[in-house]
Amino acid sequence: MAGTEDTANNFLDALLLALDLITEFNAGLIEIVSLSLSVSLSAVLIAASIGLPLGAALTVYNFRGRQISIVLLNALMGLPPVFIGLTVYLLLSRSGPLGALDLLFTPTAMIIAQAILITPIVAALSRQTCQALYEIYEEQLRSLGATPLNIMLTILWDARISLVTAIMAGFGRAIAEVGAVFIVGGNIEHFTRVMTTTIALETSRGNLALAMALGIILVLLSIVVNGVASVTADSVSRSRANR
């Protein structure tokens, strides 16, 4: 049975191992970290290019069923990664409708699954941000004769710093999930193995300290990416204020 002392030792081992892996620039680690980043950042790029305009459009355009769409969008934020993974798997399988593309068990499949997972998050959060701004701007913009498209673009532009939070929420979900990428990527070494699938694999091999170490590195990675995003957003807003 795992005693508390055991657990404490595991945790200490994990911390030391994490430090070792980082300081020695472990080649295997660099490979999976860069794949994790490139998959999740690509997914974020796709999610942002769909989610931001969608969020703004739901704010500005008034149409029948708008309220329902917003409720649906908010609900989709809670989609389980395993469900999305399975759906993408069945679509991309050779026996599925998109089988001819030969994308199953590739990084592209992982990008697709993560993009589906986080687009609702980016869209719903950016809608909320845009809505707040729209309530302030609406009258003024309409009196200037702005078209809905103009209003959308203006709001997105002015809200861009707050929208970073929406995008980062999406990134956080993407980089941390394991259910979808495991199913559609297959956890193939040197090809589709990312941080989270490695953690799952090492746990299953009983290498708990290594799995923990990788978990710690994943947290650090997330802090770095969020830090970069927040510093960039900050410096942008400051340079505007100084102008």
Binding site: I46, A48, L156
Partner: peptide, 15 residues
Amino acid sequence: MGTILSTVINRLILI
């Protein structure tokens, strides 16, 4: 603007 640019980038990545 920003969104159009990111759409273009996104297309390029997909390609």
